[in-house]
């Protein structure tokens, strides 16, 4: 997408740069540097919070420990609701990290004024606003549910493609492609659209007017994280149970 709002040079804070990336070359591979910079920030935040909270765990929690325990209970509930009491425990780290990474990424993109940090090219934003990140997460989710299915039922996992009737085989196969596609594009589209709307509004009216849209962005960001994690849990559950074609 071209940098269509070139007149925004009057307001350096309100610049729109979609499709411009801060490229790094790693031995012939090009990567988007800005995505990694913010994702490292997000990962660092998560690790620091966990380490700080876990430094001195008490039987009666207080402060940060209490908060992180609340987070863990929330994630456990989420995984338990999707996978059921019996199966959920091994999947808590995966689903929980999906939720935490996406949630912190989205909110850091919405709350932290990354644009104050100048890059040679492109701009810092939520890592989830880059299609590479969301596709990576969605493909990992696909791998996760295939792994879950094969681990639980071996090659019998393929039976779910012809159950209840082989007529639905093409649809069942198609589902394996639509699942990661919808997961990744839903997240990517929501986050990028939110950033664009806020950027455009800030460009037009720099004060106050964008605030409600920003709040809405925070809300949708949280919802998208929840949706991604919940759907990942639902897909894994489906692979474990093999109830054929539940369409989500």
């Amino acid at each position: 997408m071209p940098n269509f709002l070139t007149f925004s040079n009057i307001l350096p804070l309100a610049e729109l740069e979609v499709g411009h990336h801060f490229y790094w070359n790693l031995g012939g591979l090009t990567v988007h540097g800005q995505v990694f910079l913010t994702s490292w920030f997000v990962i660092g935040l998560l690790l620091i919070a966990s380490l700080l909270a876990g430094r001195n765990r008490q039987m009666v929690p207080a402060g940060l420990q209490n908060f992180m325990e609340y987070v863990l209970e929330f994630i456990r509930d989420l995984a338990k609701n999707q996978l059921g009491e019996k199966e959920y425990r091994p999947w808590v780290p995966f689903i929980g990290t999906l939720f935490l990474f996406i949630f912190v990424s989205n909110w850091s993109g919405a709350l932290i004024p990354w644009k104050l940090i100048q890059l040679p090219e492109g701009e810092l934003a939520a890592p989830t606003g880059d299609i590479n990140t969301t596709v990576a997460l969605a493909l990992l989710t696909s791998l996760a549910y295939f792994y879950a299915g094969f681990r639980k039922r071996g090659l019998g996992y393929f039976a779910k493609y012809v159950e209840p009737t082989p007529i639905l085989l093409p649809i069942a196969i198609l589902e394996d492609f639509t699942k990661p596609l919808s997961l990744s594009f839903r997240l990517f589209g929501n986050i990028l659209a939110d950033e664009l709307v806020v950027a455009v509004l800030v460009l037009l009216v720099p004060l106050f007017i964008p605030v409600p849209v920003m709040m809405l962005g925070l809300f949708t960001s949280a919802i998208q994280a929840l949706v991604f994690a919940t759907l990942a849990g639902a897909y894994i559950h489906e692979a474990l149970e093999g109830h054929g074609d539940e369409d989500h």
Binding site: V18, L26, V31, H32, F36, N132, A136, L140
Partner: peptide, 19 residues
Amino acid sequence: MFDFDATLPLMAIQFLLLV
């Protein structure tokens, strides 16, 4: 916008490490 490159696998590996 749909600019796929080595970011994708590296991000996946990074995410697995984070897990």
